[in-house]
Nucleic acid binder design. Structure first.
Length: 424
DNA sequence: TCTGGGGTCCTAGGACCC
DNA sequence: TCTGGGGTCCTAGGACCC
């Protein structure tokens, strides 16, 4: 049985999402900013042409935004998440086997579609997604996932391909590998790229010609798998069911630095509640909870402090109330007066399925009651937005809240924002 | 002044066991 | 005085991804 994978990738996803609800942005340079409006994390093609780099600090292009040469948006993950679901739903109509690989990418197993005209089918997918969701996508099709990634990249780059490239013939595959710089191969990061370039390996094709033993010796089994994938031997399978996460982290830099315990506590409690929500989504509980705090390491004037504290909880939990309680204890243990804090975070680990908990004889908590409360809480959050109901510890202060000066409405998920959309 | 956040997998080396 | 060999578990750190 021949393997055949398609990688469907949304073009400039976050920027495209903003455009769906404001078509006046079409053909204009659009950028989307990281949390706290710090730096650029997504760019429309027009913004790329202007030379705006990925990760560029926002202050460097503020003048372009003020003179309306570039349109900037704070990131709106509620909107992007919902648009992503729509795209994935649409894609699932085209194959029974799909893997949502990231918020803007999906692998499709087309193994049983060998007999049809793949190029035509890919165009049908592309057209349908655009029509149903407003999001432009590109498709690369090849015998392995890694080659599908190669195909997808070229599909985007090449004018002739115009967003769809099928790589099934060996000559086409070789040409594609020759046209792919080493550092653009999926699985080759900066370190390996530098290491290999020193050894005169410059393209994906050069890499595919290396010996298996050499690659394994210098790049572990991960490199070896990559080598085989590029040679057309499928080593990476489609992962249709996302496996539960082994660690969950919620952390943010604050909108401005804070120095009181109360502000830090509100932020940390809020992050603990988000971790709890993420745990409940995947029906699991965590045994360990870690809190960390840090000052701004970029600031040369501030005194620096970093610390973290891990607590083993008596019974694994996913309750807001419990996680916030332990997060508070951990924070108290590491908080020191006299520092300007810039970031804190909560990590939960040792994650177990909700239904097979190791209970403790000394457990004093009514877990059933907590569970019911949390289900009500989640229902309200779904309807009215995250954080609409919260514990007192999470507070109402906004000293630490994210800076988000250019945020678009959550057009697709919040009633009030939907009304805004109609008025526009 | 401003410089993101959240993950995974693999390996080496130490501790410990029989 | 010579000085085995296998296994597991854990952790830290490196590399990568979007």
């Amino acid at each position: 049985m021949t393997h055949l994978y398609a990688l469907c990738d949304c073009n400039n996803f976050y920027a495209s999402c903003e455009r769906v609800f404001d078509p006046s942005l079409n053909n204009k340079p659009v950028v989307v900013l990281s949390n706290n409006d710090g730096c650029v994390i997504a760019r429309s093609n027009e913004a790329k042409v202007l030379g705006i780099a990925m990760g560029e600090p926002f202050f460097k292009l503020r003048h372009l935004v003020e003179s309306k040469q570039v349109y900037a948006f704070s990131s709106n993950y509620t909107l992007y998440g919902d648009m992503s679901n729509r795209v994935m739903q649409t894609l699932s109509r085209f194959t029974p086997h799909a893997e949502v690989y990231s918020i803007d990418e999906c692998f499709l197993d087309l193994g049983s579609f060998c007999h049809i005209d793949l190029h035509t089918y890919a165009w049908e997918i592309k057209r349908t997604v655009l029509q149903w969701t407003g999001i432009p996508v590109s498709l690369g099709i090849a015998p392995t996932k890694t080659l599908a990634k190669v195909a997808n990249r070229l599909a985007k780059k090449s004018k002739k391909a115009n967003g769809v490239l099928v790589l099934t013939h060996p000559q086409h595959i070789q040409k594609a590998l020759e046209a792919t710089p080493l550092q653009d191969v999926w699985g080759i990061g900066r370190r390996y790229a530098r290491f290999l370039q020193q050894r005169h390996v410059h393209t994906a094709y050069d890499f595919s010609k290396l010996s298996e033993s050499w690659v394994k010796q210098h790049m572990t089994v991960v490199g070896l798998r990559l080598l085989k994938e590029l040679r057309g031997e499928a080593c990476l399978e489609l992962e249709e069911v996302a496996s539960p996460k082994k660690g969950i982290c919620t952390s943010r830099s604050f909108g401005k630095r804070v120095n009181t315990f109360d502000d830090l506590q509100e932020a940390t409690a809020t992050y603990a509640a988000r971790c709890a929500r993420k745990l409940r989504r995947q029906n699991s509980c965590a045994r360990l909870l870690t809190v960390f705090v840090t000052t701004n390491k970029f600031s040369e004037n501030d005194r620096q402090y970093y610390n973290s504290k891990t607590i083993a909880m008596p019974v694994a939990t996913n309750s807001d109330i419990e996680l916030i309680h332990y997060a508070n204890l951990a924070l108290k243990a590491i908080y020191r007066d006299g520092y300007w804090y810039k970031k804190s975070g909560v990590i939960v680990s040792e994650i177990e399925p909700e239904y097979q908990l190791q209970l403790s004889l000394l457990d004093t908590i009514d877990r059933e009651k907590h569970g019911k409360l949390m289900r009500v809480l989640d229902g309200l959050s779904d309807r009215f937005g995250q954080g609409i109901i919260r514990t007192a510890t999470q507070g109402l202060s906004n000293a630490w809240q994210l800076k988000s000066d250019f945020k678009s409405p959550c057009y697709t998920t919040q009633l009030a924002d939907l009304q805004t959309a109609y008025i526009r």
